[in-house]
Amino acid sequence: MSIRTSRDRVAGSLRNLQLSWTTVVLTAALAALASIFVMITLGGAVGAIERLTPPFQRWIRDSIIIFPVFVLAVVGAMYTAKKLVGDKKSWVKMAATLAIVIGFVTVVGILVNAASSGYDYYLQLKLLQVSEHLRHPTYLIQNGTPVLVGGKGACDMTCQAQHATLAGHMKGLGITSIVLLISNTALVLWAVAIRGGRLWMPAKQRRAAAVGTQRMPVLAEAVA
């Protein structure tokens, strides 16, 4: 009984949001593709080799997997925008809504990248630990005889590698975050433009919805 109530509530909220679902789906799909492209690129640059190949196949697969998350991000952004600026037609309100959508999908993209990077770093640390026994002592000549360099307390090769790896990930994440912000801005604007600027449900459907006609029962059910 309570489940049915929750589902009804979510379905009702989605109906009340009066979204243009085509715009939502298109925006989410583009953002997912961009985010996963950047994620794979980041992995290729600084990530773990276990997850490198084959990138194209992985791009398609991971984009499909992550797509619902981006749908939720766009819906969440629209919900937030409606609460904050409303859904009335105005250039300022539309710009604000778009900025919120861009912000949401970018944050989600960055989180996806960070999670992927974190997993890469975990794999890399595991490899470093496994391969630690393969490290070879470093000697240098002191007073004509080879002397072992380093020792306990010093940051050894593995430690150095950990630092260097982490630094690579952090810098990579920083750069890709900026790239994501720029690409998401372009993609969201394009998606809305190709939809003729339609962010919300067309007026005709709104009126129908207002008199109780369910326009998006399937999607509402699916999301619920």
């Binding site: 600084v46 990530g47 773990a48 080799i49 276990e50 490198l52 794999l123 890399q124 490899l127 470093l128 391969s131 393969l134 070879h136 090769m157 593995t158 150095q160 590698a161 950990q162 630092h163 260097a164 790896t165 982490l166 630094a167 690579g168």
Partner: peptide
Amino acid sequence: LQRGSAGGEVEWLINGTLFDP
């Protein structure tokens, strides 16, 4: 031959592992 898995000394690997002499 693989571009390695870490940014430090183990940048280059074969079959996912370092050279083990």
